[in-house]
Design a protein around this nucleic acid. Structure first.
Lengths: 210, 210
DNA sequence: TAGATTGTTAATCGATTAACAATC
DNA sequence: TAGATTGTTAATCGATTAACAATC
């Protein structure tokens, strides 16, 4: 995987899609696929697929296609999904709790290792197999947990504060569910998931009457 | 709002962001803003902001800027957020439950009017102020509910089946949380939210060692 | 009037896709 | 060899941004 070239964000997002489709094919014992197959299964143009892979090297054999197992494992390596990633969640409300118990994350090698909250009523309570911890101790706690991925599942009003704490706790990538723009230092990657925004876009597409 | 011109998807997404920022400014009694202000608050380039608005008409005054209240209400109209939108959720698991109780949706004029599930243990149970209903009856139920927006919060294995039912129930836009590509008829809009994909992209950005 | 800021055009940038030589 | 399909180049498409005349 030649580095130094910047990979377009859409390519990375599609890579995750390919991985999920390939995992499925692997389970179903399908050995080989072509870029054309990928197109029918994902809607991504075949040339797009090949181009996406080309950022990371050569993966297929002309005339034959791609070996499912090999391609799957190479994408896994590119996305750093081979080893289990510890993840911390801040916010033990409905959303944080749902995420903590979300099975597909575990299936994909992400392990929720701690859930933090600031509410004294929640601290100490059990959530799935975890004990909710005081967010005030996150810097200390993460010295042993060593999570590099953090999830912000708190109201917008306290999201920046929580994000700052995560950065202090040496978390370097953040998935933000609060509908607010986080200001973060260089080197920290954020992705925002905004349910209201998603629904607003759908709302725009609603038929005019009816 | 001259129609017939296709609005880029990124523009629509940013429109929702502007709306949320403007709502906040309105509450804080700020009367006027410039595109440069928007840039500092959202990170969106000032020219981009003006271009985004230009798809829908003229909104500001040269030399002055934009009236917060007016701009807010016009974006609200563009995104069809002025009147309350009924929304149905299929899937009363952790995620569906969290979404049903998610306050910011309500604040933005989306009203969860029903939650459906297929599990007999869940059907009839209370969730917030709603009674969980049998998904088998969704077509019938939605004749009175008249929801045009549906949320799919079920496992990937049954997502397509659920989406088909939603379409039969005259839902025309779907927010899909299942990590699978839904095949839907022309005229039905889908947006996918994939937590695993989000984390996979973050995973890619993780520092090589540490 | 001078200063600020819009709406829009034109230039730039980047991502998608078609086409094809290389190769299995 | 003939047919299939890759990896990559070049053409196309679309989105972002800089620049500026219009205007408050």
């Amino acid at each position: 995987m030649p580095d130094g070239i910047k990979v377009p964000m859409p390519t990375l997002e599609r890579l995750a899609t390919y991985f999920s489709v390939l995992t499925d094919l692997k389970v179903r014992n399908i050995e080989t696929i072509s870029s054309a197959d990928i197109e029918t299964r994902t809607g991504v143009n075949a040339a797009q697929f090949r181009k996406d892979l080309s950022y990371f090297g050569e993966f297929g054999r002309p005339g034959i296609g791609y070996n499912v197992i090999e391609l799957c494992s190479r994408i896994s390596r590119i996305l750093k999904l081979e080893k289990t990633q510890p993840v911390v969640i801040v916010g033990a409300g409905n959303l944080g709790s749902a995420l903590a118990g979300y099975q597909p994350l575990r299936a994909e090698n992400f392990r929720i290792v701690a859930v933090f909250d600031s509410n004294p009523r929640k601290i100490g309570a059990q959530l799935w197999s975890l004990t909710i911890k005081d967010v005030a101790n996150i810097v200390e706690e993460n010295k042993t947990l060593k999570a590099k991925i953090g999830i912000v599942a708190v109201p917008a009003s306290v999201a920046q504060e929580v994000a700052d704490r995560l950065v202090k706790a040496k978390v370097s990538t953040i998935l933000n569910f609060a509908p607010t723009m986080l200001r973060l230092p260089e080197g920290v990657t954020v992705r925002n998931v905004d349910f209201v925004q998603e629904l607003a876009v759908l709302s725009f597409h609603l038929p005019e009457n009816g």
